[in-house]
Design a protein around this nucleic acid. Sequence first.
DNA 1: CTAAACCCTGTAGTCACTACAGGGTCAAGC
DNA 2: GCTTGACCCTGTAGTGACTACAGGGTTTAG
Lengths: 135, 135
Amino acid sequence: MKIGELATGSGCSIETIRYYEREGLLPPPVRTSSNYRDYDDGHVELLGFVRHCRSLDMGLADVQRLLAFRQDPQAHCADVNGILEQHIAHVAKRLAELQTLQKQLLKLRARCRKEVKACGVLQALNDRLPVHPSK
Amino acid sequence: MKIGELATGSGCSIETIRYYEREGLLPPPVRTSSNYRDYDDGHVELLGFVRHCRSLDMGLADVQRLLAFRQDPQAHCADVNGILEQHIAHVAKRLAELQTLQKQLLKLRARCRKEVKACGVLQALNDRLPVHPSK
DNA sequence: CTAAACCCTGTAGTCACTACAGGGTCAAGC
DNA sequence: GCTTGACCCTGTAGTGACTACAGGGTTTAG
């Protein structure tokens, strides 16, 4: 199958598929006489795996490691689980950050609605933040 | 004050300050005879405003628009509020996405713990996703 | 006087794509 | 046989918000 077919079948763009190939996430397929990429069912499955991982917001480096585990008969389930646990922690952290953020934004909006004349929002944004020790 | 002092005072890096100047978020300060940037209190306040906006995860384009409103006596509070509302919607959307994500990841983890031998996680990740119509 | 700590410019790298530019190939209809 | 349009190719540059050098100049403390 040609790249366009694989793209519509997998729900990602042609450019993304070529990008995955460059990055080593998809093995280069055979080429037709006119240099077109010619994919088989293995590619379809592999790309499905990659897209599933990406839909869970995993980075491509993690996806690559999972792909390696799939190939490796020596790999342990614990290795797979480790990547998963790390990713769960990462998402939980970002989730907490966003929730804090949302609270602050709603507070800010409340200010604007009350003090239209002097624009409470701009005033509030002007307040300096406590400076956290940054690297 | 020199750039290093501004950096430690504001909690962002020297490179970031120079980057903001290049992007037009901070006006270029005067230079000393040895070509060092020499900042004043106006810069400190401006940078505080920018960092506060960034801590709320606003994009630099939005920050720039807010900065323009600060300068403009014609600007309406409604303009400021518009940016804020958009941003609140944006954060709410991302929050919902992450919550869905987290549920899926926890489900996935549950699989791994049960079926160690055949690694349920890798199997589950191999399941194809329903293909959403993608652009 | 020297060494460390600071500053400068300019460029390239990050991540996961996306968007061209500038070409080649193929199938259908005239 | 020729054109038109849909498809494919490579290679490069852009996105956002920085970060990380390389390769220099300046200032300050001992």
